[in-house]
Lab assay of single mutants.
Amino acid sequence: MASQGTKRSYEQMETDGERQNATEIRASVGKMIGGIGRFYIQMCTELKLSDYEGRLIQNSLTIERMVLSAFDERRNKYLEEHPSAGKDPKKTGGPIYRRVNGKWMRELILYDKEEIRRIWRQANNGDDATAGLTHMMIWHSNLNDATYQRTRALVRTGMDPRMCSLMQGSTLPRRSGAAGAAVKGVGTMVMELVRMIKRGINDRNFWRGENGRKTRIAYERMCNILKGKFQTAAQKAMMDQVRESRNPGNAEFEDLTFLARSALILRGSVAHKSCLPACVYGPAVASGYDFEREGYSLVGIDPFRLLQNSQVYSLIRPNENPAHKSQLVWMACHSAAFEDLRVLSFIKGTKVLPRGKLSTRGVQIASNENMETMESSTLELRSRYWAIRTRSGGNTNQQRASAGQISIQPTFSVQRNLPFDRTTIMAAFNGNTEGRTSDMRTEIIRMMESARPEDVSFQGRGVFELSDEKAASPIVPSFDMSNEGSYFFGDNAEEYDN
Rank of each mutant, 00 (worst) to 15 (best):
G5R: 15
K7C: 00
Y10M: 01
Q20E: 11
N21F: 14
T23C: 01
I25K: 09
R26P: 00
K31W: 11
I33G: 04
G35Q: 13
M43A: 13
Y52V: 10
L56T: 07
T62N: 13
R65V: 07
A70Y: 05
A70L: 01
R74N: 11
R74F: 07
Y78V: 06
E81T: 00
D88G: 10
K90Y: 03
K91Q: 08
I96G: 00
Y97E: 10
G102M: 04
G102F: 15
Y111H: 12
Y111C: 12
E115Y: 09
R117W: 06
R117I: 14
R118Y: 08
I119W: 12
R121G: 06
Q122L: 14
N124F: 14
T130V: 08
G132Q: 07
W139Q: 03
W139P: 03
W139A: 03
D145E: 11
R152N: 08
V155N: 05
R156P: 05
T157A: 15
G158E: 08
R162M: 13
S165F: 09
M167Q: 05
Q168N: 09
R175S: 11
A181K: 05
K184D: 01
M189A: 12
V190E: 09
M191K: 10
E192C: 08
V194L: 13
R195C: 06
I201D: 00
D203Y: 09
R204S: 01
F206W: 08
E210W: 07
G212C: 07
I217A: 14
E220M: 12
E220W: 12
M222K: 12
M222I: 13
L226S: 07
L226V: 14
G228S: 10
Q231A: 14
Q235E: 11
A237C: 02
A237M: 14
A237L: 08
M238V: 11
Q241F: 06
V242R: 02
S245I: 09
E252W: 06
F253L: 15
S262C: 14
A263C: 14
R267T: 08
A271E: 00
H272C: 06
P277A: 12
V280K: 03
A284V: 13
S287N: 12
G288Y: 13
G288T: 07
E294V: 10
G295A: 11
S297A: 15
G300E: 11
L307Q: 00
Q308G: 01
N309T: 11
V312K: 00
S314M: 06
N319Y: 06
E320T: 08
N321I: 15
S326G: 15
V329W: 02
M331V: 12
A332C: 02
C333W: 04
K348F: 08
K351A: 10
R361C: 13
V363C: 15
V363H: 04
V363K: 06
V363F: 09
Q364D: 08
I365N: 13
E372F: 05
E372Q: 11
S377Y: 14
S377W: 02
L379D: 01
R382E: 08
Y385M: 10
Y385N: 13
R389Q: 05
T390P: 08
S392H: 13
N395D: 07
N397Q: 13
A403Y: 00
A403H: 10
Q405N: 03
F412M: 05
V414N: 01
Q415P: 04
Q415N: 14
N417R: 13
L418Q: 07
L418Y: 02
F420A: 08
R422A: 12
R422D: 00
T423R: 10
M426N: 12
A428V: 15
N430W: 07
N430R: 08
N430G: 08
G431T: 10
D439V: 10
D439P: 01
M440L: 09
I444C: 13
I445W: 03
M447S: 08
R452Q: 08
V456I: 13
S457R: 03
G460I: 00
V463D: 11
A472M: 03
P474Y: 06
P474S: 15
S478K: 12
G490H: 05
A493P: 10
E494Y: 04
E494F: 06
E495P: 04
N498A: 02
